[in-house]
């Protein structure tokens, strides 16, 4: 097992407000790492720092596309980071609304090909994989929330990333839809995909994660296996609350 991304002492401030403070953790190759924490804990900010939307005030993000290839991606432009193999989705879904589902995914697929036919072929493969084939010709603006979230994932997948970063891809979905996304994520992991996931829905994220990192008020307060985290009193106090605590004891 090797690390594919190493985040070291990452700090991000907006004026007086400290969104991330001295956060360090690793993302292991072909694993699912989850980032959890209460609202305003700085999860999305961390995403933005890793993917180049923000330039962190201090700290370092290192990316290992291969075992002995080390790239410092701190503060690089987003499109460059994507070309290197790290792609994200957005918490507030940004469907390309005047484009069809297939075109949405093709836009991503063009990263590694210049030919429209190849991009279309790849896009169709991914639409199949994400269960969107039926919606292929639907315009982005006509989709339901669940479909949009799926398109969001499909479009990111189309760039063929080494690391896929999902920002709350289950929020606002119903139980069945969440199950579907969970299955999709597990399927991706089985095919060798590394994932970093920000998620609020504990019931969904705990069972599929290999490792959980907990942020609270911008700081990392815990890191470990889902079991460890579920039993970590600090975490329960800071975030999970009695509800999950009770639930996890029952099961």
């Amino acid at each position: 097992m090797r690390n594919i991304i190493e985040i070291r002492n990452l700090t991000m401030k907006f004026g007086e407000l400290i969104a991330n403070e001295d956060v360090s953790f690793d993302i292991e190759h072909e694993h699912i790492v989850s980032l959890i924490g209460p609202n305003g804990a700085g999860k999305t900010t961390l995403f933005n720092c890793v993917t180049g939307f923000y330039k962190p005030c201090s700290g370092q993000v290192t990316y290992y596309p291969e075992e002995d290839n080390k790239i410092d991606i701190t503060g690089q432009p987003t499109h460059k980071i994507c070309k290197l193999g790290i792609t994200r989705t957005f918490q507030i879904v940004k469907t390309l609304s005047e484009m069809t589902v297939e075109q949405n995914v093709m836009a991503g697929a063009f990263l590694h090909t210049n030919r429209t036919s190849e991009a279309r072929e790849l896009a169709r493969h991914i639409l199949e994989q994400t269960g969107l084939t039926q919606k292929r010709d639907e315009l982005g603006r006509n989709l339901t929330v669940a479909e949009r979230k799926r398109v969001e994932i499909a479009r990111a997948l189309a760039t063929n990333p080494q690391v896929l970063m999902l920002d709350e891809c289950m929020a606002g979905l119903n139980q069945t839809e969440i199950k579907d996304v969970m299955n999709l994520i597990l399927k991706l992991k089985d095919s060798g995909q590394t994932l970093l996931i920000v998620e609020h829905i504990m019931e969904a994220i705990m069972p599929i994660s290999d490792k959980v990192v907990v942020l609270s008020s911008g700081k990392k307060i815990a890191e470990g296996s889902p079991q460890d985290i579920a039993n970590n009193d600090d975490v329960i106090k800071a975030y999970l609350g009695e509800k999950y605590h009770a639930k996890s004891k029952k099961s």
């Binding site: 993917t51 432009p77 499109h79 994507c82 957005f90 940004k94 075109q103 991503g108 210049n114």
Partner: peptide
């Protein structure tokens, strides 16, 4: 073509365009 898809992606969302590797 790729160009056309990239243009439209930029039109629809600057951020998405960047996130999928478009400058």
């Amino acid at each position: 073509s790729k160009m056309g898809y990239y243009w439209k992606a930029i039109r629809e969302s600057h951020e998405v365009a960047e996130a999928i590797g478009i400058n």
